[in-house]
Write a protein that binds this DNA or RNA. Structure first.
Lengths: 248, 248
DNA sequence: CGTGGAATTGATTACGTTCAATAGATGTGG
DNA sequence: CCACATCTATTGAACGTAATCAATTCCACG
């Protein structure tokens, strides 16, 4: 099933019936593929349908005056992109692929049908967008009030839990298919400084990162150092020991 | 009419019929008052109804480990607080009054009724929450990629346009009822540095601020310096000369 | 193998923080 | 209406985190 990661993620909010899962699957009208660094939607455009990330990572970003990018969200399999397409005139930011990706196009009319007839499923989808917003708030705090090392640790903790919720983690490790430069523009650092901070986390025995695979060696110390409290992810039991080790 | 600022704001998205306005007004079940610095909702709580700011300013914030606050949103008259109350288990942040405020409590059942029977109005309300999210994204870019002086200028530009949309501005000035310390924790600076940056903007002839009243002296230079592009506010004609001078 | 992107290291600079002290504004009670 | 208390704004000096600029080194891939 192509939409497995979404189902998995939604299940950290509520359990879905087989009927509901099929409904969701059926809403996929087509699948597009994008190459690394290709734009999925661009600022100023009005998307025609809603997107669901199936495979690979993407990001929301804005282009700044000086030509730099700033990333405002990481999009992993199971994440929805534009629940709001019908309402806003045009995108105020762009979305692009960080790796080769597969993106499902969700039909607007199917979605409306779901909203009207499958209230539990509709709630689950809305929940997912509210969580996205909550993540945005946490990122704002991260950017505004934490030092570079704490900021990075915090992001890595989040991405482990999110990867896990999508069924993409193993023990305390997950694929982190981003360059250091991309990580840098995500937390608002220069690539140089990001590199130094990464090394610090490695030196302190908190993480291991090679070949685009991140291992969090000591979750306890990592969350403590990263000032990470998972409540903002609004997962059923996030933060509890059982959640942290759910896939062991 | 108590909900004038909301109506005004929504009208920058769509015009509402008298019927729709009355419907909105009728959804207010009660009005609460809070003193300066009092919490309206606290992290961990589950609010009973949706809140609408009627008078005064508030803010969303999180408390950090070191006891500092970080502000994630400024809430002015006409702004809605928690469209999502029914879905998330508990607040992941708090909301408090920056000045003495009046807050309307909107009944959940009335709201559902509106959503079901007044689609245009429902769209307008949803639009307003989508704009809030868009503002959050812009703040993230602001915090992550702009220097302190530009960041402050950007925020002040935004607050002028938002105040204006709520009918609370005059020419290029509006009430900014925050201390420098509060402004500082909004854009992630120390109060000391915020003060210096404020003075720089004054020295450069961009703004005037006294007695909690802000005047943007030179809108053209201010937006240019602040790298401010109003598209993210998704107002009907924001950015156009006619919008900028709409209330002159 | 060789080539180009990604990661790493070093040296210097600058933006913003921190700590500390002073001045100004606001509000309250006598 | 003044005197005092308190919060807010302002200034100064020293420090520190992260940016900048410039080289290398390391890898993955063709």
């Amino acid at each position: 099933m192509t939409i497995e990661p979404l189902i998995k993620k939604l299940s950290s909010y509520t359990d879905l019936s087989r009927d509901e899962k099929q409904m969701l699957e059926a809403a996929v009208v087509s699948i597009d593929e994008f190459k690394k660094h290709q734009d999925i939607i661009r600022e100023g455009q009005k998307p025609e349908h809603m997107h669901l990330m199936l495979e690979g990572w993407g990001c929301r970003y804005k282009l700044l005056e000086d030509g730099k990018h700033h990333t405002m969200a990481l999009i992993i399999p199971g994440d929805l992109c534009d629940m709001h397409i019908t309402l806003l005139e045009e995108m105020d930011h762009s979305i692009r692929a960080l790796t080769p990706v597969k993106v499902a196009n969700i039909s607007q009319t199917q979605l409306n049908h779901i909203v009207d007839h499958y209230p539990r499923l509709a709630r689950a989808l809305l929940w997912s967008t509210l969580v996205d917003e909550s993540i945005l708030r946490e990122w704002l705090v991260n950017a505004g009030s934490r030092t570079a090392d704490v900021r990075l640790a915090h992001l890595l903790c989040e991405m482990l839990l999110r990867s896990r919720a999508a069924g993409l983690s193993e023990h305390d490790s997950f694929d982190l298919p981003m360059t250091q430069e991309e990580l840098a523009e995500t937390i608002g650092l220069t690539p140089v400084h990001l590199n130094r901070v990464l090394q610090k986390l490695r030196r302190d025995g908190l993480i291991e990162l090679k070949r685009r695979r991140l291992v969090i060696i000591d979750w306890e110390r990592m969350t403590s150092f990263g000032q990470f409290r998972p409540n903002y992810l609004h997962q059923k039991s996030s933060g509890s020991r059982s959640m942290q080790t759910a896939d062991r």
